[in-house]
Design a protein around this nucleic acid. Structure first.
Lengths: 169, 169
DNA sequence: CGTCCATATGCAACAGTGTCGCATCTGGCC
DNA sequence: GGCCAGATGCGACACTGTTGCATATGGACG
């Protein structure tokens, strides 16, 4: 293992598999299939979507196994997930496997999800590390609020009297 | 008693009710009960816990109504919720109703949830506002990562056999 | 105060997501 | 090849949140 040198991993799956082995966990077809699916799709996927994709590549893998594989991979810090509103969780490879990271930003009103630069939370991460020894994973964060459009449309939410439009549909 | 002077709202429920009316929405017993419960409990509550508490104060309110009330209140920016891991959503009054805010910080490995000061995300909020016009709600954010204790243990989880013990019975 | 209508609620059944127990199979190692 | 802890297949389950429809209620207006 040449962990001393920092070189870009050509295939995150290879690196992930190596880490699974390094931790004494088993490398199975289901787990590699999940990793491959997540690596190929560079967007966040629901467990159901992962199940569908894995079934295509390796038929016979059960739905439950997907969940268990995702759980195992998450404990190994190879996979993370976020929750937007009440929808299903969306999984993705951990940030340290894919280099580029981004932070999810969701508008509570219109539901639109956009991306913010990955370094957005760098200072927050530093502060958490210094004050609590907490290692933040920026890729697993979903920031909730109101997007520009909705803020303009609905109006400022401060306590200054909201101008109530007469009920006209 | 209430003039133009800006002073902290004594009762967030009163303020919330005022805003419901100001938006032309209806003030119902279910909605006020939900607000009251959330205001009394200064911690985050699951929908089920809210249902139980509301049932005590105003029996006869249906479970579905709790969800619909929470949904309506959320659209009015009076209530927000967070999702920790795969558990149920936990609801709370919007930050602007209750002066003090805090940010939830969760360790992915041990599951411990701690609080960070509410101003932790101030800079992030400013940046999002400036760059995207996005109004962040810091109280609706759950930061995921690894706590100090788990990081020191270096291993991903409890069964961390990084260096495998010789296995023979 | 009484009427009216949009909408909030009660009710029950449903949908989706994730979990559990147990028998069987497989990966890693001898 | 053979062994065994751990992973998987399978089914059934638990839980959270949603929907359609009939009815009750809020609040505005006369």
């Amino acid at each position: 293992m040449d962990d001393g040198v920092q070189h870009p991993t050509p295939d995150p799956v290879v690196e992930a598999v190596r880490q699974i082995r390094a931790h004494g966990e088993r490398v199975t077809v289901a787990r590699t299939a999940v990793l491959r699916v997540l690596a190929d799709a560079d967007e966040h996927l629901s467990a159901d979507a992962i199940f569908a994709a894995v079934s295509r590549a390796a038929p016979g893998v059960h739905r439950t196994t997907i969940y268990r594989a995702l759980d195992a991979l998450e404990r190994l810090d190879l996979v993370a997930f976020t929750r937007l509103r009440h929808d299903a969780a969306t999984y993705h490879l951990a940030g340290h496997l894919v280099g580029g990271t981004h932070v999810l930003v969701r508008c509570r009103l219109c539901g639109t999800v956009s991306h913010a630069p990955g370094d957005l939370l760098d200072e927050v991460a530093s502060r958490l590390a210094a004050e609590q020894g907490f290692a933040l994973d920026p890729t697993a964060v979903a920031l909730t609020g109101r997007c520009e459009t909705c803020t303009k449309h609905v109006g400022p939410l401060d306590h200054t009297h909201v101008n109530k439009p007469p009920r006209h549909p």
